[in-house]
């Protein structure tokens, strides 16, 4: 089902992931979050931006365990743990945050 972002209709797959990585603008995250009744705080954006950078460098969406470890390294131990990330993204930090960041579903995600 396509989503409406800045007056443009963007293609997504059946799970709501952007069909075209290059379509992503920050408003995509806001729109996707609203569809799941979620409000995005600074803390959410920190993770979303981190994922964008990770993808830019490695061309993949990281598995949750890898994301958690990498966040810990970059943003500190209090944020690099599953509990913190699950509280921000209750549908799973891998799946949900990657979706908001416009990335594909993480490889190895079950």
């Amino acid at each position: 089902m396509p989503i409406e972002v800045n007056g443009k209709s963007l293609e997504t797959d059946e799970e709501g992931y952007l069909a075209n990585l290059n379509d992503w603008v920050p408003e995509c995250a806001t729109v996707m979050a609203a569809l799941e009744d979620q409000e995005l705080t600074e803390s959410h954006w920190e993770v979303i931006n981190f994922l964008r950078e990770y993808y830019d460098e490695y061309q993949i969406a990281p598995a949750v365990r890898v994301l958690t470890k990498a966040i810990g390294k970059k943003l500190g131990k209090d944020k690099g743990n599953s509990k913190y990330l699950y509280e921000l993204f209750p549908y799973g930090p891998g799946k949900q945050a990657c979706k908001y960041a416009g990335l594909p579903k993480p490889t190895g995600c079950v």
């Binding site: 460098e57 490695y58 061309q59 993949i60 990281p62 890898v66 470890k69 990498a70």
Partner: peptide, 14 residues
Amino acid sequence: MKNFSPTYRALEGY
């Protein structure tokens, strides 16, 4: 085609 060679550098994180 997608250049997937940067992904080999992500392996360390895995």
